[in-house]
Structures are given as structure tokens and as C-alpha cells.
């Protein structure tokens, strides 16, 4: 499964970057995160509820940030394992400043196994895209109100 897209924030790049490096913000951005704790440098452990329709469950996830190049780029890997399968997602986030604010470009790929894939394959991509869009809207709201 592949995801990619762009999003414009009417906010300066440093603020966007700061939010994206804040674990509390990441926890609010990612779908279904119930707990997120740093366990090392740029490594977090999380508990997430993931699901598509009836195929849902609580997943243990490890989130690793790498290639950190403030305030422009990082790579994020999410490895989640749960009763209905596993998710291994790997992607990049790139920020560019322009006169009106900041443009974010994201792209990534996820390998999904188990029931999540075999029952949910057709719904996986639209669902993931929906969750990403939601997360980005939340982030924008956070940046513009705070």
C-alpha cells in the first residue's frame, strides 16, 4: 500500500517542524494512538487501536524517526503487531517554506499482513488516506489556534 500527498499550513516552517518533532503531537496525529512513550533517541513505543470495520484490534507499535534534517526532512517507520496482523510502514516527510507558510510533502509505503490485509485490502488505502487527511487537519487546527 502506498500513500503520498501534500498539505499546506499557513504557518512558519519552524513551528510546523517543532510540532512534528513533539511526541505529544505525533500521538494526536497518528490514528488510534492510546499511549506513546519515548524509549530512546527518536524511538517511541505506542499502543494503537487499528481497524477497518470489524477487523480491529490493539496493536503494539514501535515508531522510529531517522534522517532528521531540521526543519526540512525526516523519515518515520512504524512497526505495529497485533492479533489481526502486522503493519510495517516506512515514509518520509519533507517541509518547504514559502511566502504563505509551509508545504508538507509526504510519501510512504506500508506492508500489511493478516486479516487486516486479506479482508481489508480493498478498504485499506482509502481508509489510510482518510486517517492521514484527518491527522493533518488536526495538526493545522492545532497550529493555528495555539
Amino acid at each position: 500500500m502506498r500513500l503520498q500527498g501534500s498539505y499546506r499550513f499557513p504557518t512558519a516552517i519552524d513551528r510546523v517542524w517543532g510540532a512534528l518533532m513533539n511526541p505529544q503531537v505525533i500521538a494526536r496525529l497518528l490514528p488510534g494512538v492510546e499511549r506513546l512513550e519515548p524509549v530512546g533517541d527518536n524511538v517511541y513505543e505506542a499502543e494503537m487501536r487499528l481497524g477497518i470495520g470489524p477487523i480491529s484490534g490493539r496493536y503494539k507499535a514501535r515508531i522510529t524517526l531517522s534522517e532528521i534534517d531540521p526543519p526540512n526532512h525526516y523519515r518515520i517507520r512504524i512497526q505495529a503487531q497485533g492479533p489481526q496482523g502486522t503493519v510495517d510502514a516506512n515514509g518520509t516527510i519533507d517541509l518547504t517554506a514559502d511566502e504563505a507558510g509551509t508545504v508538507m510533502h509526504y510519501e510512504g509505503e506500508a506492508k500489511v499482513t493478516g486479516l487486516l490485509m486479506s479482508l481489508g485490502a480493498r478498504l485499506l488505502e482509502p481508509t489510510a488516506q482518510m486517517l492521514v487527511n484527518q491527522g493533518l487537519k488536526n495538526l493545522e487546527a492545532l497550529l493555528t489556534t495555539a
Binding site: V112, T113, M117, S118, A121
Partner: peptide
């Protein structure tokens, strides 16, 4: 990845 997509 050899995941069976037609499993229902």
C-alpha cells in the same frame, strides 16, 4: 508479499 487478498 504473498498475502492472500481473496480470503473471504
Amino acid at each position: 508479499n504473498a498475502q492472500l487478498l481473496s480470503a473471504s
